[in-house]
Amino acid sequence: MYNHTVARLTYKGLLGRRRALLLCALPLLLLVVAVAVRGLTGADDEVAKGLLGSFAMATMVPLIGVVAGTGAIGPEIDDGSVVYLLAKPLKRSSIIVTKLLVAIGVTVAFSAIPTLLAGYILNGNSQQIAVAYAVGAAVASVAYSALFLLLGTISRHAVVIGLVYALIWEALVGSIVPGARDLSVQQWALSLAQKVGDSGAGITSEVGVPTGVTLLLVVTLGGTWYAVRKLRTLKLAGEE
């Protein structure tokens, strides 16, 4: 199910040139802000929770998920070079699974690890806040990668649709319509973070752990399955 050459090419596509700059810039920004905030206010659990929750979890993780998830397959479909890959005697499922693993690896490396570091910088992991958010970010990375990889195979506007979901649905609609929060990868991942963090940490999630885990699994597995299906019947269209 894992093909080394496909993985190498995907890594090169994802981390080549400017894309890597963007992927590095966001975690760096988080770390710089974490250092600045620590210097400004000292260690404070509420501040750490605010920064990790509203910037790292709500903005950084989805954005890196969008870039890595759609970037793993989108550009190849866009410029048509995916036909060379599809023409090789490789199972479509192993192409998708390999690309998904690479996307997950990149998203975790660029979002969960910086989140952990920022948590340690902000309050030295008091009440397990850093670890809790890092676990949340890692779990969310898996689901986001699967979701956005699927989007990359469905639409040419994958990045825009992904951003609409990440920024408008989760941030804007979620803050106005409480029901929308149940249907968000971020909240499902936070349910795990809530479990990991100490009870005094006060990380809250809209859904319980069983629901969260089930929905995450459904999205990840369902997304992967449908992406494989989509790649089997891929139509290469020209630029509209």
Binding site: L22, L26, V66, L163
Partner: peptide, 11 residues
């Protein structure tokens, strides 16, 4: 690349 430009502008 359009996709990359979109993400970069949001960033």
């Amino acid at each position: 690349r359009r996709g990359f430009g979109v993400a970069a502008i949001i960033a």
